[in-house]
Write a protein that binds this DNA or RNA. Sequence first.
DNA 1: ATCATATACTTTGAATTTCAAAGTACTTTA
DNA 2: TAAAGTACTTTGAAATTCAAAGTATATGAT
Lengths: 97, 97
Amino acid sequence: MKNIIININKVFDHRIRLGIMSILVVNEYADFKTLKELLGVTDGNLASHTKALEKATYIKVEKSFIGRKPNTKYSATKIGRIDFKKHVEAIEKLLKQ
Amino acid sequence: MKNIIININKVFDHRIRLGIMSILVVNEYADFKTLKELLGVTDGNLASHTKALEKATYIKVEKSFIGRKPNTKYSATKIGRIDFKKHVEAIEKLLKQ
DNA sequence: ATCATATACTTTGAATTTCAAAGTACTTTA
DNA sequence: TAAAGTACTTTGAAATTCAAAGTATATGAT
């Protein structure tokens, strides 16, 4: 018998990480503050989820200074975009079976 | 600024529970064995997730005997169907923003 | 000038969740 | 009647989630 959830990617299987990726596939970059506001999450929580996506090489992190303030920019990697697309397709398939 | 993940339901935000609900909204009933095979999960894991959905009153559990064997049937409740639909709409909205 | 508050994160670890191994209670097959 | 299978439940270790507190610097008020 076939496994209907096998193509769902565990890394993306959380609302916050799904939200982060949704933002990063349509925007070239997003910084910490923007993600935090769009998602409505606490600092520590956002940091954990971006770290998980970074560990999976699905997002890239660039740190710089804007004026004298630190700024962290996140962007989706090539493989991040590919695997996210597959994940979205798996969810859509599951939901309309 | 608007929170783009606020309408995602935490109870459904896991691939196994999403899978269980997907099955139960299109089938009037599914038993433990069927869910286990369709989802490819271990017994204990499935029991935890059905329990979480039951606690949220999103599924109903009916225990009986088929012949002399125990059988557990799961079905989606009215509120389960309503909230699942909302959840699916929230995901779809998030993904195509 | 200095004190308080704000910005932009990071670190930490408690709380919760996930998961599978082992257990229970039969039934079926040899 | 012994061994293996079915249908779950219980248990608790492991992993994950989350927010409080910490670090470092900037900005605004007195």
